[in-house]
Design a protein around this nucleic acid. Structure first.
Lengths: 112, 112
DNA sequence: TAGGCATATGATAAAATTATCATATAGATT
DNA sequence: AATCTATATGATAATTTTATCATATGCCTA
């Protein structure tokens, strides 16, 4: 018998995809890749983040389908899947403009 | 070298809004409120979550502008801001359908 | 095939998030 | 006012997430 799973239109999987966006490292990487594809080394240089930190987080982004990898010599070029990411981010824009100030009182914030 | 801070169209504020979605308690509450407005007690009953857990998380959702409160007697009715939330979630749908399986190999997942 | 880059991976320490417990506040009812 | 019900809040424990360190793997060129 297969594991019964309730069908929610919006289930836990959603949470995991949102989580991919909710972390500073990954979000900065996404920002950079919005401009153009980059190798791991380039991302490290531009962000100042350590290499393994970048690699670990890229792996997550790849599993989530947010980035695609192509090999180029001995380096790997990461490309953003713009088709899905950009619209999601843009949708947030509108909401954010409106509520950004109230966010200051939200307990999930520690650093703004 | 001075730490130059670039102006990004997509900054840390985004991360915080995404974070509001990336937690199970809040996501379940959002799911419920998609159907109809509810009081804290009703949310507790339907989810099985403890009252203070629900209240704390509702506060976060309120600061983020995801829900609105109206007083009714001595209880408070929480209503989802459908105009912003529903489109965001729907946008995720499409992406999720496509990549859900790959997510199983992602290290941010502990529970699926 | 040896050595040098580039990237990936695993284990664990460090940090951040979340739930819980105890208690406080607010409105309603007697 | 006393008390009941509903909700909120603060402090802290528990859990989860994240970064770091050490090391491994893979591709290239001499």
């Amino acid at each position: 018998m297969p594991k019964l799973q309730q069908i929610h239109r919006m289930d836990n999987i959603h949470r995991l995809f949102f989580k991919a966006f909710s972390n500073q490292t990954r979000l900065e990487i996404i920002q950079l890749l919005k401009k153009k594809p980059l190798t791991v080394t380039e991302i490290c240089y531009k962000t100042g983040f350590e290499q393994s930190r970048v690699s670990h987080n890229l792996r997550c982004l790849e599993h989530c389908g947010f980035v695609k990898i192509t090999q180029n010599g001995n380096s790997r070029v990461y490309t953003l899947d713009e088709e899905t990411i950009v619209p999601i981010v843009n949708l947030f824009e509108k909401h954010i403009q409106k509520y950004k100030l109230r966010l200051e009182n939200c307990w999930v914030i520690k650093d703004v």
